[in-house]
Write a protein that binds this DNA or RNA. Structure first.
Length: 109
DNA sequence: TACTTGACGCCTG
DNA sequence: ACAGGCGCCAAGT
């Protein structure tokens, strides 16, 4: 019942949580899934609050496959470490084989 | 109530 | 092909 009061942010967390292990998605893909194609920025902004939630924010990158938000993680390369820990190859803040690892919620669902 | 910010994306030069 | 600027939407102050 109160679920209807879910803010845009919480909706984003739900989608990010659906990202399978070893896969990555983009802000635009999430926004598109939520019907807010023009609100890709909001998705990234929502991730700021994701620190208080259990959300694999490190699996979310921009549409170029760049770890733009890595600066928001602890340390400097924690985000990259987490991705590599899942078997994702990252080099120079850019995910290698990105289109292959790309997970689109609209397609998966 | 209004202004500013922001982990992006697309268009134009 | 590369770089820079503008646009959009929601939340916080």
């Amino acid at each position: 019942m109160k679920e209807q009061t879910l803010s845009f942010f919480e909706s984003v967390y739900e989608v990010v949580r659906l990202v399978p292990y070893g896969r990555v998605t983009t802000y635009g893909a999430i926004a598109n899934y939520l019907g807010a194609v023009r609100s890709a920025r909001m998705v990234g902004y929502a991730m700021n609050n994701s620190h208080d939630k259990q959300v694999p924010a490190h699996r979310v990158v921009n549409r170029k496959g760049l770890l733009t938000g890595k600066h928001h993680f602890e340390g400097t390369n924690l985000m990259q470490q987490l991705l590599e820990n899942e078997g994702i190859r990252v080099e120079n803040n850019q995910i290698q084989n990105f289109e292959n690892l790309f997970w689109d919620p609209s397609k998966a669902l």
